[in-house]
């Protein structure tokens, strides 16, 4: 366990370095800069600004400086939001995105596993076909189609929930559903496939022969091995939810990190964009690590 943790920790370093080098060069090589505006600044002011933010140094030197600051937890100042540091912006945006994302993930896992299990128990019946066709539709309809439709039906026509903004739980309902739906569909498909295989296995037949009820078999014996593929999908699912949040936050006017990112990219806000990429990169790496540990805990055949 300890060896595994240490190994993974050192394994993550090259990943992070590649991530940062890629993002850094991509941002800096791009034409345009953070101080481009309608009004042409005088050369002298431009020079001073560049000097103040160390933009006049060679690229590699800037990168080293950035890394040094990062190690001390300093993401630097934002270029576009004057007087704010990137850390402050992440601190305001992330809690919102986290709430949205974790609720969506929770909903996706619970609903997805439940639906998939139901379809597996009724394999090749009409229920199964209907549910699985619905799930295939869910995989195929993108978030940015679902979200406006949800707004149209539940906010504009029925007026059950507000169409956007931030407030009490009612504001969260539609964005969370929009974010979760494709994942529910995907997880349901995964669960159905593995559950069918597990239910066919010998030890389940033995359990059945011993007279255990369907429910006991399901919860005590079948569920744990059947959700293994779902657990290993959690990594990509997080990435998908983070990406989806960019769109969902845009549509529902939720002030989270996704919106900061798109705005930051459009404003050439170097440090903000870089900060968000690094932040999410670290988050995904950490999350994948926890998923691996959970997987090994669920499946003792896999050794740490």
């Amino acid at each position: 366990m300890l060896r595994f943790t240490v190994k993974r920790f050192f394994g993550a370093i090259p990943t992070l370095l590649v991530l940062m080098v890629l993002a850094f060069t991509l941002i800096r090589v791009a034409p345009g800069g953070p101080f481009d505006s309608e009004k042409q600044l005088s050369a002298e002011i431009q020079e001073r600004l560049n000097a103040a933010y160390h933009l006049d140094e060679p690229l590699w030197q800037q990168f080293i400086r950035y890394l040094g600051n990062l190690l001390q937890g300093d993401f630097g100042p934002s270029f576009a939001y004057a007087d704010y540091t990137v850390s402050e912006l992440i601190a305001t945006g992330f809690p919102v995105s986290l709430k949205l994302g974790s609720l969506a993930m929770l909903l996706a896992i619970i609903a997805g596993v439940a639906i998939g299990t139901m379809a597996a128990l009724k394999q090749n019946t009409r229920t199964d076909y209907v549910v699985m066709t619905a799930a295939m539709t869910g995989v195929s309809v993108p978030t940015f189609v679902i979200a406006p439709l949800l707004v149209l039906v539940f906010a504009v026509t029925l007026q059950w929930f507000p169409a956007g903004g931030l407030g009490d739980w009612r504001n969260l309902v539609l964005p969370v559903i929009a974010l979760a739906l494709p994942q529910i569909a995907y997880i349901a498909r995964l669960t159905r496939g593995s559950m069918i295989e597990v239910l066919r296995s010998d030890y389940i037949r033995t359990a059945r022969a011993q007279g255990l009820t369907q429910i006991e078999i399901l919860f005590h014996h079948a569920l744990k091995p059947a959700i293994l593929p779902v657990v290993s999908y959690l990594g990509p699912a997080t990435a998908a939810i983070i990406t989806g949040s960019v769109v969902v936050e845009q549509i529902f006017g939720v002030p989270g990190l996704g919106r900061f990112f798109v705005q930051g990219a459009l404003n050439r806000d170097y440090t903000l964009v870089m900060g968000i990429v690094v932040f999410y990169g670290v988050l995904i790496i950490c999350f994948n690590f926890f998923v691996d540990i959970a997987y090994r805990w669920l499946d003792p055949r896999v050794k740490l």
């Binding site: 590649v18 991530l19 090589v29 791009a30 990435a239 960019v246 990112f261 990219a265 964009v273 990429v277």
Partner: peptide
């Protein structure tokens, strides 16, 4: 390939499209 898997790729694509 493993290293690339951990990248938040959509973000890179967005950056590419914005900048270039």
């Amino acid at each position: 390939v493993d290293v690339m898997y951990a990248m938040p790729f959509m973000f890179f694509v967005i950056l590419l499209m914005v900048f270039f």
